[in-house]
Nucleic acid binder design. Structure first.
Lengths: 171, 171
DNA sequence: TTGCATCCCATGAATTCCCATATATACAGA
DNA sequence: TCTGTATATATGGGAATTCATGGGATGCAA
């Protein structure tokens, strides 16, 4: 498995829609772009589809290639395949990190998610998410409500039920 | 099972957020990083998520790979998976031990745990914890309250119910 | 030719790297 | 067993880089 996105941070969005990508995320994007070599700027894919989703989802080139392959394995013409194509292919776009480590969020996308002058980048393993700050805060609190239950102080409890797989250390 | 973290000690945190990692812990981090060889500096992952938790939890690369694998075995999109992702992926970050055996705790993390000029490193087997000194003291006392009960003088009593497995010395 | 998007440059702040030192620990030889 | 020497550890300071962000120039298209 490729490098994982980890961590979160808030960044300014300027009038042109430019946002800095957290440096740690850029390293993952570079590693996940087969075309990339030192001096070049990695490509990534942003998915804004999915009704009700409150975030834009960022994929490395490799991670998206995996999604594409899965879609291509679905029965041609099936409704599920059409839905997947709609979300991942129609409602997405490809961007390139620029010289200064930023990407541009077009006006209509910013509008859709209510993003104005700031955006939160939150890691989620193979992908990362771009949120409107308050929306992320709300989401974050909802995720943490679980801890209010005195039984659940240790998040490892969440993993307890999962299969005791052998650790894979990746490549 | 890999080498275990053991022991505790207090270290200075300087204005840049740098803290020395106890040398004994470094040995475990080295052993737990598949990329590591003599001369290199091991990577580790710090988890600061988990509402109400009063410490930062440090994982070796291997230990975190196990957590990641468990998360990936959870049903996609399930609430528990989301929570696990939030705590272990979003509210965590990766750092590398530097030339002088230190790591850097960013300002916002230090603020969250009230860590200013000192921090306590406390081992916990496969992971270790970083505490604000007074918080650790408090925790430590709470753990020891148990002994106040005259019946419970021998901590081995705690292990009584555990399965009598054959000791594995690991590798 | 006006609007939008891309490219290029500039700058302060934060972060990393490198070097220095004092103390503690291990080791070797007498 | 004692003692000097080498080694490892914990910590501090400054230089060099990288990062995040803002501003303007350039180019293309409607």
């Amino acid at each position: 498995m490729a490098q994982r996105f980890r961590g979160k941070s808030t960044h300014k969005v300027d009038a042109k829609g430019r946002v800095s990508i957290p440096a740690a995320f850029r390293r993952v994007l570079e590693a996940g772009d087969p075309e990339w070599t030192t001096g070049l700027f990695p490509t990534l894919i942003l998915v804004y589809g999915g009704k009700g989703r409150k975030f834009i989802e960022g994929y490395t080139v490799e991670a998206m290639a995996d999604v594409d392959a899965r879609i291509e394995n679905m029965p041609l013409g099936s409704i599920d395949r059409r839905r997947a194509e709609h979300t991942f292919l129609t409602e997405s776009f490809q961007v390139q990190v620029d010289l200064t480590g930023r990407l541009v969020l077009p006006q209509n996308i910013r509008d859709k998610f209510g993003i104005s002058d700031e955006a939160v980048f939150a890691a989620a393993g193979t992908t990362f998410q771009i949120w409107q700050p308050e929306a992320h805060q709300e989401h974050s609190e909802k995720m943490d409500e679980w801890y209010d239950d005195a039984e659940n102080v240790d998040p490892l409890v969440l993993l307890g039920a999962a299969a005791p797989v052998t650790a894979s250390t990746g490549d």
